[in-house]
């Protein structure tokens, strides 16, 4: 598995684990869930452009800071920066740079979501994924058990993984992780919306 890099492991264990918090933080700054996800994805991509990622002491806080800086950059590109926006960025940062609470618990609720997403997969995709990932069978044995070709196994796995990723990202059947924060931020986001409409 030479194709898996150290940064992939680092990212999964120290950044992606806190994905929900990143999305909530982003959603507290921008107008809607889609813009928030955009911001998070852009921040993640920045991490992969770094050479010195190993020396980041607190990857979660670092990522939050990138999200915040990206949001500020975007705000500066807009015609008007309102005091309200800056205040919001400041408040949100303080709220979210507190030490990560209970990693084990976060881990478990994430796992619950993975499992329920796995269960919602169409049966053949689920079976292929189960045999390959839970039972650990090599692809030819999965193919034999399912009585299909190895390339069909691969197709089921690709489609299953795509569905899992989208469902976990709330891209399919919205799991609504952002909702609670959006209400709270409504008055502030209005100013952003107004600004956008005038540009």
């Amino acid at each position: 598995m030479a194709w898996l890099r150290d940064i992939d492991v680092w990212f999964a264990d120290h950044v992606f684990l806190h994905r929900d918090r990143h999305r909530r933080y982003a959603a507290s700054i921008v107008r809607n869930a889609d813009d928030a996800e955009e911001l998070v994805q852009e921040a993640y991509a920045r991490l992969f452009a770094l050479d010195n990622w190993r020396s980041i002491a607190n990857p979660h806080a670092f990522t939050v800071r990138i999200i915040r800086n990206l949001a500020i950059e975007k705000a500066r590109r807009a015609d008007v920066v309102r005091i309200g926006d800056a205040a919001l960025l400041h408040r949100a940062e303080i709220a979210d740079e507190q030490p990560t609470p209970d990693v084990v618990a976060a881990d478990r609720s994430e796992l619950d979501r993975v499992v329920s997403a796995m269960q919602e997969l169409p049966p053949r995709m689920r079976e292929a994924l189960y045999l390959r990932r839970v039972e650990g069978l090599p692809p030819p044995q999965v193919a034999e058990k399912m009585n299909i070709s190895v390339s069909t196994v691969e197709t089921h796995l690709v489609k299953g993984l795509r569905l899992l990723i989208r469902r976990l990202a709330g891209r399919d059947g919205q799991n609504g992780a952002e909702n609670s924060v959006q209400c709270e931020a409504t008055d502030k986001t209005d100013t952003i919306r107004n600004r956008r409409e005038t540009t």
Partner: peptide, 18 residues
Amino acid sequence: PRHASAFAQAAATWRRTA
């Protein structure tokens, strides 16, 4: 870097399934 990031996110989810 967006490709690298998307791949790492896929790998993180893939890993969870096991």
